[in-house]
Design a protein around this nucleic acid. Sequence first.
DNA 1: TTGAAAGCGCTAACAA
DNA 2: TTGTTAGCGCTTTCAA
Lengths: 334, 334
Amino acid sequence: MATIYDIAKEANVSIATVSKVINQNGRISDKTRKRVSDIMKRLNYQPSMVASALTKKRTYTIGLLIPDLANPFFAEIARSVEDRAHELGFNLVICNTDNDSVKEESYTVLLKQKGVDGIILATGAHNNAILKKLLHQKQVIAVIARDMPSLAVDTVLVDDFLGGYLAANHLIELGHRSIAVITEKFEVMSSRERVRGYRQAIEEAGLLFEEKWVRVSSFQVQDGKATAGLLLDEDNPPTAIFACNDLLAIGAIQAARERGLSVPRDLSVVGFDNTILATIIDPPLTTIAQPIQELGKQIVDLISQEINEKKTSKQRLVLLPELVVRGSTGKLIP
Amino acid sequence: MATIYDIAKEANVSIATVSKVINQNGRISDKTRKRVSDIMKRLNYQPSMVASALTKKRTYTIGLLIPDLANPFFAEIARSVEDRAHELGFNLVICNTDNDSVKEESYTVLLKQKGVDGIILATGAHNNAILKKLLHQKQVIAVIARDMPSLAVDTVLVDDFLGGYLAANHLIELGHRSIAVITEKFEVMSSRERVRGYRQAIEEAGLLFEEKWVRVSSFQVQDGKATAGLLLDEDNPPTAIFACNDLLAIGAIQAARERGLSVPRDLSVVGFDNTILATIIDPPLTTIAQPIQELGKQIVDLISQEINEKKTSKQRLVLLPELVVRGSTGKLIP
DNA sequence: TTGAAAGCGCTAACAA
DNA sequence: TTGTTAGCGCTTTCAA
């Protein structure tokens, strides 16, 4: 591997000069610049970023902490983050945490040791401790698709309250009166907000908000299916279910089907996220769309500004979700 | 941030001594080791890996080139690779190439500049040139889920021929005689192998292999849907379709549904990959399962051995796919 | 416009 | 057992 010394020697200049042509700064005569450039090309020279990282304290690498890449929602988030990061000249090191705070902790110290320029968190809402620690160490961090209201951190997320409201409202407009919610655990802020939005719509419509129709579940399809099953097996089952993500919604559809119920005739289902799954399930899922591309782009823009110190203050950007009506919801048939 | 010098000073030892306790090598008295360790802990010292990378020429980072994280199959691959990499002490930088050789090229030079210990390729089968170049530069590389028969590279993949055979054979056993295939473009080795396996099964059963039933398509759901649509609209449509991946199979199911055909009564469909999608679609998809966890684990083990020079020769590990029968296939009803 | 030299934080050979 | 020292490949200040 050619080093800066090889180039310098070959070109009869100092390494300082070579460095300047690499970084296109300092004053250099066009003549030497060209000579050096040519030699770099000829020797197929590629400057070592680990060496430059040591002096510049910049690795052009961002860490992404995510619960689980195998979950389509997070995979799509990761994809959009990587796209924008790449455009801005960053690489992305991706870490699957399974929302396990031990993993989160160990990944964050590793990333720090590797000198990443910033860390984007899509994980572990509950774990303020880790965030605080990072903040305290002057790590540049940003949070995507999660809310940490108590911390001054760059954040991009969707208005979960509105999302919940839109979902419930859609069902109400279709005539439904018994609308259940299946949510992930409440430690996750966004779940709570979605349920709050649901409640708001319910009450605004003059309906009674009933605790018994709010069910907490884990986040996999099976969990949604089991939880929905319990609901459907009751004496007065709901005629509609709002599930706080597409995975759970799919579980609900499966539970209905298992019971010989037809969706949407016997049960309407609304999801959240608008992942690829929503278009694949039959019937296609009515869901609340998160602008995933935009979320990814914006969070990278924010963190990149902070890395480049082009920013004075933290921001919290709230994007608006949209209702996407497909086949899983329909008018209540009395 | 504390450096090795701070620790050395605080402990009244040389930086060499501190380095030894960090790396647990060299001979050190228990007493000083403990003193130094305590101080490291007290000052919350975390050795800079970028500095050590400069001397050791090891970053404990692996690059993963993948077509598209938003594609569930590759997302699951990425997840399994990351899991094993993490276990072995590596981080993973993930690059989405969209199978675009320009991107592949630019990512590989970037990764090289960043001094990654190795690169795992799940992308761009067609592009031997890039591979050769990397090999020539002594980059440690490995290939997952793709075959590069002409190159001496560590490879882990599934027996695509067998997979195709199993798929077709299953349909034949169900009584089908007119079995179409939808495949990705043939530049991808694995597609070709899957079709070869299909053909083998057809001919072994004494049936006629017909070119007209082999259709090349792009790789998205829509493409599969469109291609299947053409097949179904023919005068003598096939009674079964083997699609070379789950996405295409789902497209086929959708095309059938759109035409009022019932799966599997009027059309049987087999997919390939056994992604999460296979369990979500209705009816659940009969498909050829790739052992994704195992693929990921094995490729990381191989590349890690190569990085640690614990290996003399390249390997090509072929895992066996399995037929998973679900609801999308059924006996031919005459 | 160019170059000398110090330094980034660590490792490793060698000496003490 | 511990320390000295020369790098690793680059950036950057300052002087020429």
